[in-house]
Design a protein around this nucleic acid. Structure first.
Lengths: 345, 345
DNA sequence: GCCAATTCCGTAAACGTTTACGAGGCTATA
DNA sequence: TATAGCCTCGTAAACGTTTACGGAATTGGC
């Protein structure tokens, strides 16, 4: 693996000149710059990450922190992979690299974050799965690390964030079901302290009250936001007496839909016939039968916004992106299916 | 952010002593070591990544390369997140960090790999989604980078690999369907050049021939290994005349099952009644109705094996892991469901 | 009480870059 | 021709570690 030293020797110039040429500094003759660039390409020279990071104090790497192994995570691969892709289309313009920082399920997320940040591994971070109260936010803000959160939090350090419109999902969903005559509408609530669930349930509750429908705690199903959780909800629903069972249901993500469908079918209940279901779109949920009525969002666009929100906070990119702290709820589009056709008893 | 210099000043010792104390070198008094460790913990000192990497020539980071944004990828989040978790349980014992190296869909994977390797970003790599002929293997082997492949390839550079038992899946699946009287058995084939599809189809073909059933190219459905692909297969099947339509089907992954189920339902065909389907397990496929007969594998165990196979090739860990190049096909367990109950016409 | 061995620690070089600084050569102007 | 200015490039320091080396202080054996 060739370094700048050998490259310089090969060209009979000093390493300083090579560095300046490669970094597009003005004080280098165009002819020699051309010569250097060609030789670098030919010999496959790539600047050593450690050397550059040590000297410059920045790595050119942005980390997207996520937890592995947790069966409790709500968002899935298509979600993240699409978001990543959006982020990268922006980063590519600035020679920034995106890596996923994988926090083991055995390590405390906050400790992991501290470790990664203190090591100077990344210049900036994107954190996801924000908790209702999230230490990471205070920590990052306190240390002046540029970051953006995918998800709101009650912890407010003036950080930029983007989030799906969970209020809108619950509100539109409930509106839609109420308009069809439903009064007993079930809702998913998270068993952990991720923030999105609270927002969702809160909006659900307020919307119900706006319609004059009393809030019924028995219709709040507390579990993990994944397939298994959906399945548990279905079993709980099936076990309820007819006059107490929800006739409609709003779900916060696609994994729940899958488990719910499975569990309902096992119990002989058919979504769209016996219970109205409104969920969230994914390549997965897209093929459920009957077709799921759901909320959709461009995940690439989300990724792009995320990247732009991050760069807007980084001094190095000042002026290239609209100033100010971006805090945006991304609206979602309702895709009509058949799963919410069921009428109340 | 405190460095070793300030830590040393704070303790009135030299930076050399601090470094030795923190790295567990023998030539340091136990009392001072204790003093140093305590101060380091108290002040939150974490060695700078760049400095350490530059001096040591190694980063303590292992990269797992994967492509983002590609809707064509076959494996999903539960797959990777579970594998990651397995890898990390092994890495944790050696202070190794796992990061996902995200190759944008707009960048050539091989170019990305070269860039990452030349930069010295990671000490070792895990590559996945191996192609039938994979440049990355030659490149990594040629440059002496320790790596392990998740997936076989015709490109053989003596590299270690692990792979799911796609032969076994096709063979057992076909055996099972033939035993039930099926003769027209459909199979998925990849539209790209990932290796696993070839292995799968090849085994399918050989197993059929072993049973004296003629191979019918019309029963090979060439598409992408995801939900959409499964949906396309279903539509193709539904459009076939009854006497040409496959009465059974073997699928290579869980995403295909989901799309296939959706597409079949749309066409009024029910898996397990009108067509026998055998697929692969996932939290997702687990909740399909009717219950999918599928092949299952512990993904955490896969991750652990992957990590061990990698460390076995790294000189720094010599002796700690069984020597030799690990090349192992991981057997899968058949989980009986109802989706393959359909009988041939 | 002297020499050798051991224990502990400080010094300084090295890793591969980037960049401030200054030197040299050239051009242009008077 | 002298001087100022510009263009181009080399020199060397710096980034934060690790580690080879050597020196001082202590210990042990006789």
């Amino acid at each position: 693996m060739i370094g700048i030293k050998r490259l310089a020797e090969h060209l009979n110039v000093s390493i300083g000149t090579v560095s300046r040429a490669l970094n597009g500094k003005p004080d280098v003759n165009e002819a020699t710059r051309k010569r250097i660039l060609e030789a670098a390409a030919e010999l496959g020279y790539v600047p050593n990450q450690a050397g550059r990071a040590l000297r410059k104090g920045s790595t050119g790497v942005v980390g997207f922190m996520m937890q592995t192994g947790s069966q409790i995570t709500g968002e899935g691969d298509v979600f993240f992979m699409s978001v990543f892709d959006g982020v990268q289309t922006v980063f590519a313009r600035h020679q920034l690299d995106l890596v996923a920082l994988l926090c083991s399920s055995e390590e405390d997320p906050h400790a992991y974050l501290q470790r990664v940040v203190a090591r100077g591994f990344a210049d900036a971070l994107i954190i996801s799965a924000t908790k209702r109260h999230d230490h990471r936010i205070d920590y990052l803000a306190g240390h002046g690390i540029p970051f953006v959160a995918l998800g709101r939090s009650l912890t407010d350090a003036g950080q930029p964030w983007l989030d799906l419109d969970f209020e809108g999902m619950a509100e539109t969903g409930v509106n839609r079901l109420v308009a069809k005559g439903h009064r007993r509408i079930g809702v998913f609530a998270p068993i952990d302290d991720t923030n999105l669930g609270f927002v969702f349930v809160d909006s659900y509750r307020k919307t119900l009250e706006r319609h004059g429908v009393a809030f019924d705690p028995d219709l709040v199903f507390r579990t993990h936001p994944n397939e298994r959780g959906g399945h548990q909800i279905a079993r709980a629903i099936a076990a309820m007496p007819d006059d107490r069972r929800p006739t409609g249901f709003v779900l916060i993500n696609e994994k729940l839909s899958v488990g719910l469908y499975g569990g309902l079918h096992e119990a002989g209940l058919i979504p769209g016939r016996d219970i109205a279901v409104i969920g969230r779109d994914s390549p997965h949920a897209h093929y459920l039968t009957p077709k799921l009525t759901c909320f959709r969002l461009s995940l690439r666009a989300l990724g792009i916004s995320l990247a732009e929100a991050l760069l807007a906070t980084m001094p190095a990119y000042a002026g290239q992106y609209p100033l100010g702290v971006v805090r945006k709820v991304l609206p979602m589009e309702l895709v009509e299916g058949d799963s919410d056709n069921a009428l109340p008893l």
